[in-house]
Design a protein around this nucleic acid. Structure first.
Lengths: 248, 248
DNA sequence: TCTGTCGGACTGTCGGACAAACCCGGCAGC
DNA sequence: GCTGCCGGGTTTGTCCGACAGTCCGACAGA
């Protein structure tokens, strides 16, 4: 037998042809952001297929965040953002049963970087939101409420302050799994809450005075603490961060 | 007027109900990996909706990589992998016109980490594939061929050798954009190819002798060189890595 | 000017239909 | 007994036609 590469001999289904064609039009810029598409009937006419087929193709792009419906009506082009991608990636990691250690290792690289860049580049509004988050976290601790959501938001805000979209996108799915996992098991460690908020405070302060080094080291310290807390709770670093946030 | 919170009153379309329900079944483990789903007709019967509606729901999950078709026939549950997620993320970054600097900053954090972890944990097979990649790259240089694909693969292999799936997933979309962008402009720098392959060689050697520190520093050096080359080519670090790989 | 009504356009959903591909069991041929 | 061909049932991909609900703009009335 020869080593001839045998192509998968399947005439791609029409609905995939539709979605791929539309995808190319969007990626090539011929369909611009926010622009409205023709109606399904007209698309069907132009593609020369049935409306049902067009709909199936549209569903795929919709699921990928390249298309959106505006209020049950017209279909418009949109770019997939964090809101679309991060949950997908988190889901994939959940299904793969990624371990705490794997998440933590990446976080230890990305979070300090984020804090450092945030210190260099942050804009006023993000700093305000970070400070607001800090206050809410303190209030939550005082009231004994869970601060899972606030902690997760804190790290997202730091990333947002870097203005680095690649970093934001790469970090978000990690945060979505790691922080809920830690905090969900956290209540067993009474003083862990105050340690956490103290670390957050230092990071925000360092970012506020544009001190990259301090922001980096405090964040690294914070992430290291996370692992210490995990081990103190007698949890296996190579175990799965179960019960993590499955966003709807 | 009162401040009563008025919810957006949109009864979710049935096709979304279908996809969300199936998604929950998959995520909760009631539908296991590789398991086959009932036929579309039967699903329609159980959900109490029309087959067309079921199909639209299925298309969404298919686009997210949670379902796959096995040879035109039965539909089976699958977990989305790198092959599904990385292109989506890359597309998103392309649409956002992420700059070279943004990608590079993240790469400078992730790639050395990957190299270091690979040195600690690599298994024999991956090292062999790295060495094969190295040879092919040398051959490509000697023949004057482009080594975009080989360079991209090199970094993917290093990440794979870490056995850290979170890292693999977070890094891949960056690599998919960054390396093609550099190399596509690289030919202007005649000696850059040999510098690149030399760096690769050092990284592979360090991984081979399980020297984490050396692997980390050599990779950091390599990524730094990338930026130097970019600037030598008189390209704006805050420009877009255009002409990058759009994986069809 | 504001309000109520009307017609057109579009989406979401439905039912039915058919060709092609595939799976499976049976049956002849060696 | 094994191989290879054949026919039927199942399932997907695609199409057609239809209808209710909703949205939008136009238009008449107060």
């Amino acid at each position: 037998m020869t080593d001839v590469r045998i192509e998968r001999l399947t005439p791609a289904p029409a609905y995939q042809a539709v979605s791929r064609t539309l995808e190319r039009l969007i990626m090539s810029g011929q369909l611009k952001q926010g622009e409205a598409l023709p109606s399904e009937t007209e698309l069907a006419g132009r593609f020369g297929v049935n409306r049902s087929t067009v709909r199936e193709g549209i569903r795929q792009l919709e699921a990928q965040g390249l298309l959106r419906r505006d209020g049950r009506k017209r279909l418009l082009v949109s770019r997939p953002g964090q809101a679309e991608l991060a949950p997908s990636a988190s889901r994939a990691m959940l299904l793969e049963q990624v371990t705490f250690r794997e998440l933590w290792e990446v976080a230890l690289a990305l979070e300090p970087l984020a804090a450092g860049l945030a210190a260099e580049r942050h804009q006023h509004e993000l700093l305000q939101r970070l400070e607001a988050n800090l206050e809410e976290t303190e209030a939550a601790i005082a009231a004994g409420r869970s601060m899972v959501a606030l902690d997760t938001e804190f790290h997202s805000l730091v990333a947002a302050a870097t203005l680095n979209r690649a970093l934001i996108l790469a970090r978000e799915p990690i945060g979505l799994l790691l922080y809920p996992a830690c905090q969900a098991i956290g209540p067993q460690l009474p003083q862990s809450g105050s340690g956490l908020v103290e670390a957050h405070r230092q990071v925000v302060a360092a970012i506020g005075r544009r001190d990259r080094t301090a922001a980096t080291t405090w964040m690294a310290e914070h992430i290291t603490d996370l692992r210490r807390a995990w081990e103190l709770a007698r949890l296996d670093p190579d175990g799965s961060p179960t019960a993590a946030g499955q966003p709807a």
